[in-house]
Computed example of a mutant assay.
Amino acid sequence: MLNQQNQIDKKREMISCVLMCGGKGSRLNTDPTVKVEKPLLELKNRSLIEHMIDAVQNSKKKFKIYAAVSKNTEKTKDFLKSRYSNDITLIETTGSGFSNDYLVVLQFFKDKENKEKNRIQDFGNNKILFLPIDLPLISSKTIDEITDLYQSSPSIAIVVDKNLFVQNNFIPSPFVTEMSKVDYCYTGISVLDFHTITALEQIDQIREVPMIMNNLELVYNINTVGDLKKAEKFIGL
């Protein structure tokens, strides 16, 4: 009985983290010099997805890591199976866009929650952290700060001042929200209270509340070889 309680306590400390890596990488695919899938693109001799995994694993938090993969990232899937089979659980998505893949992942957790109602669950503290793998400069410290944010709503989305992208010669995301007459770009990072999923008849009813985090690590979004070179230069500095 005591051993079972210890297992429950450990689960309660754990946060689910989903690495979103099933996209097409459309802008990179148009570059003839790029021969690999976006998650496997190397920055300082390590792939983008390895940089992200390192940041998550070196966090002060305890994460159970998932990776959302698709037919677009078959080699990434093979890489994760061979290198991280004991550390990362794969979730198959459609690869038809970030929003659609996000909904597939939510359905995965909803199904998992329903199956495990009478058993010890993987996600005890109710949070799911979504991280796109094209933000390889994100640090463990920033990940800790994001998961520690006060969550006044079931789902929060991290946004960055659009001017920060412009000032650092990055193309701002087209997904923008305006607050106090300032435009903020969505980063693709979000934190969700997963228990809200089971309370909804349709998972696409979830509404995200934007939360500002003007951190340069979140500006270095890798969509082109030029972006990769900027990130290399930034690391060098």
Rank of each mutant, 00 (worst) to 15 (best):
I53P: 02
L80I: 05
V69L: 08
H51G: 02
T94Q: 15
K61E: 05
S85V: 11
N45R: 11
S70I: 04
K44Q: 12
I65V: 15
I65M: 07
F79P: 00
G95C: 05
D78A: 14
Y84L: 02
I49Y: 07
A55P: 08
K77P: 09
K44P: 05
K71I: 15
L80R: 06
K75F: 11
L80H: 01
K75N: 15
A68V: 08
T93E: 07
D78Y: 12
K71P: 14
T93D: 06
A55T: 06
R46G: 06
I65Q: 03
S59M: 00
R83C: 09
N45A: 04
S59V: 03
T89F: 08
L90G: 05
T93Y: 06
D78W: 09
I88Y: 04
K64M: 14
F63W: 00
A67D: 09
N86S: 13
S70L: 09
I88R: 00
A55Y: 01
H51W: 14
V69R: 03
I65L: 12
L90P: 01
E50P: 02
I88W: 00
S82T: 11
T94W: 09
M52A: 13
V69S: 00
K60W: 03
D87H: 13
R83H: 14
R83S: 14
D78H: 12
V69D: 01
N72H: 07
T93H: 06
L48K: 05
A68I: 09
I65H: 05
K61F: 02
V69Q: 00
N45V: 03
S82G: 09
I88A: 02
S47P: 08
N58G: 06
T94M: 11
